Amino acid sequence: MPAGAHLIKVDNTLGAAFIGVICAAALYGVSCIQTLYYFTRYPKDVWYIKSLVGLVWVFDTIHQCLICHTVYFYLVTNFSNSTSLADMIWSILLEVLFNGLIGFLVQAFLTLRVWRLSGNNLYITSTIACLVVAEFGCSIAFTVQALQLRTWEELKALKGLSITVNILAVVPDVFIAASLFFFLQRSRTGFKKSDTMITRLIVFTVSTGVFTSICAIASLVSILVWENTLIYVAFYFSLGRLYSNSVLATLNARIAIRGLGEDSDELSFSLQTATKSCQPAFNTTSFLRPANISIKINTTQELTRDHQHMRDLEVSSSSAPQIPPRTTRSLP
């Protein structure tokens, strides 16, 4: 991450930067497909959700251009110029800002989901929001100060700030994933279809958060262990792409996940009782007609959508009203 502040010897680890650009480019292709899919399948989404997707894709594109320029500068333009390796290129510093912008937009979106699922829990949501804003603020501060420097050696002065940004990249992801898991788990109803929907939501939400957290942790660890190398960029270059793909996957999966909750849970059973026939001593046979009792219970759960703020944005079983059971009895 910006802890490129520790980089002095870049000549031996430019291969890691090259691998990072390739991985980021592959993920960028996935995000482009997901963006196209979103605008095709959800043309009626509210304007601010469309704006979120559009901005994430624009920042994704700019970030990909910046990291490609960085690798091209060192590996192609200055292929035989070893003295240029001591100098920092502006694009590797500016990419930190756009990575921060992508992370800020995505984490703000997920923080809003926590707010909705928690029933407007101010304490939890404000804690996550402060961490998200702090991370973005540190990214801006690092970029502004780093752009005034010229060499990797000078960048070592920003070591503390760079490590802070890396730590703040991990903590909000962990808080968001844990909060979403807790509130989704708490919203279970006991009905098969709705619980299946919630289970898939939990797996989907946690898995997308885990990927970004693992990548951020790997970037932080590589900075602390190999501080004078570019190994960290193999992870950090892909971090923004994981953020963008996670929010796009969340939005694009709404139709499939919502379909799990639209079917009704049905419990049907029949109870059949019969009395034994008896034969009195008067050679008279009487039969008591068996009584057939059929009981059918239909229970339907429906999901409500917030038409003012979060229309088609999330599926939350915790806020879904339950229709009382309807019981029908029929006696033949």
Rank of each mutant, 00 (worst) to 15 (best):
R116Q: 10
N166E: 08
K156W: 03
L158M: 00
V170E: 10
F142M: 02
L131K: 03
L161A: 09
Q148G: 11
I124P: 01
G119F: 03
A177I: 10
I124M: 04
V165R: 00
E135D: 05
T125F: 08
E154H: 02
A177K: 03
D173F: 07
C138S: 14
S139C: 15
T151M: 09
F109S: 02
A134C: 08
L131C: 13
L149Q: 12
E135A: 14
C138Q: 14
T125Q: 05
Q148K: 13
T127E: 02
L158V: 01
R150L: 05
E154R: 04
A141N: 06
A177Y: 03
V132F: 01
S179T: 01
C138Y: 11
W115I: 04
S179Q: 06
L149C: 13
I163D: 11
R116N: 11
L158E: 01
L110A: 14
I176E: 13
E154D: 03
L168I: 07
R116K: 05
V170N: 09
Q145N: 13
A146F: 09
R113P: 06
L168D: 04
L131G: 01
A169M: 09
A141L: 12
V114N: 02
S162K: 11
F142C: 05
A146H: 03
S179K: 00
E154F: 01
K159W: 14
C138D: 14
C130L: 15
A134G: 01
R113K: 13
C138R: 11
A157T: 09
Q145M: 10
E153Q: 15
T164W: 09
L149F: 06
L147T: 11
N166P: 04
W152A: 00
L161H: 06
I176G: 00
Y123C: 10
L161F: 10
L147W: 05
T151H: 08
L155D: 01
L147D: 08
E135Y: 14
V165I: 15
N121E: 10
L158R: 00
L161N: 05
C138P: 14
S126H: 08
L112A: 07
N120M: 12
Q148Y: 02
V170H: 12
Q145V: 12
I176N: 02
V170R: 03
F136L: 13
W152Q: 10
A141C: 15
S162Q: 14
N120W: 15
F136T: 13
K159D: 15
R150Q: 05
A169F: 12
E153T: 15
